[in-house]
Design a protein around this nucleic acid. Sequence first.
DNA 1: ATCGTTTCCTAGTGATCACTATGGAAGTCG
DNA 2: CGACTTCCATAGTGATCACTAGGAAACGAT
Lengths: 215, 215
Amino acid sequence: MISRVKRSIANDMESSPAQVARRTGRPLSFDRDAALVTAMHLFWRHGYEATSVADLTRAMGITPPSLYAAFGDKRRLFLEAVDRYLGGIEAIEHGIAGAASARDAARDLLVAAALGDTGDDTPPGCLLASSLVTSSPDAEAVRETLAATRRRIEAALRARIERDIHEGLLPSGSDAEMMAGHLFAVVQGMSTLAKDGAGRNKLLGIVDSAMAAWP
Amino acid sequence: MISRVKRSIANDMESSPAQVARRTGRPLSFDRDAALVTAMHLFWRHGYEATSVADLTRAMGITPPSLYAAFGDKRRLFLEAVDRYLGGIEAIEHGIAGAASARDAARDLLVAAALGDTGDDTPPGCLLASSLVTSSPDAEAVRETLAATRRRIEAALRARIERDIHEGLLPSGSDAEMMAGHLFAVVQGMSTLAKDGAGRNKLLGIVDSAMAAWP
DNA sequence: ATCGTTTCCTAGTGATCACTATGGAAGTCG
DNA sequence: CGACTTCCATAGTGATCACTAGGAAACGAT
């Protein structure tokens, strides 16, 4: 992560004052971030395991040694693509925690998922939800990393609901764990529906249907 | 399918009268159905693409040529395993259509999914929902077959809801498509949650939360 | 016993997997 | 310029992928 920041600073040198040490040696011949976005789209469409390094290098316009030098290995490239996709897990958590109400947080999350699952210029479905659901034993550790990210988002939503319960904005008998679980299941499920062909209006209608469960 | 019936009749010959021609040649040395169930469990746990033929033959206790002779190829074995898992897609459709009310059909489907996703002796999650969400281009046709099965179940649920709307058992303004979509998204999502570690009580609580959206 | 039929295992096929050793090319420095 | 650093492409590595050719073995029928 630190090296990534350094590198992007170095790449921006032409437009910034010379206060950071310039890297010596041959500069990178490709746009690292553009290559990362390309990889993200491939993982998004075909999933982690079904996307081969050969697929990646072909789409990114680089050779395998360049990929490994720039991103480590397939696993780290994937995790970096997921981070790039989410815009940082912390940003999502803060977005949920900082919503005006738990209901707003829930609706915002569902609508964002529905829109993100059905973008015109992006693959259908959600990268986080769908790119690594089942896995070979080799990829199990990567799968678990993604599962942990999914649980963090669900936990953030649950915490926001609990806050509204404690503040009396929701009935005291409300079950925050099950409400968050339900909404997060809808997020996961909408991704599969999108991959199976559901369009944006369908998913937004599902959001309305799901929000009808709100107390 | 027909050959399967013939074969199982032939295998049951010891206990039935000699009205069916007995097969000549060396008999099958393994229990075809038990092998199918073993394959089903492997696909269930690891998904279609991550389960190799070598994994299958090792677990089934047979060699690759036996697998290919008995099941065709990996794709057909998988589809047969899915059919065995569902107990026949028609049975599911009839179950939904024949429920006492749309609400019963919905609740039954969700509870069956929650229980099936968290069996003690079976892998977590749902074979239909999780074994082939994303795929390589090679497996895209198989993925689409599974997607069609998923859509059939959702369509059966939607049809059952529409019937109750027409019969006045549900408010005339109800949107059957979105209600069915919501519930089916929960089914899909619960499978992912189960694979991510959610237990039976959690999923049953999610069912209650989702059913709270019922008019 | 012999024949026809079917299944059995051994031992592979070429293709693709993630990944890398090597050496030259392309830069920045003094 | 020459020294140093870093990235580049070529050309592979062994492992695993789905799948199968070929011949021996096990059956019912005769």
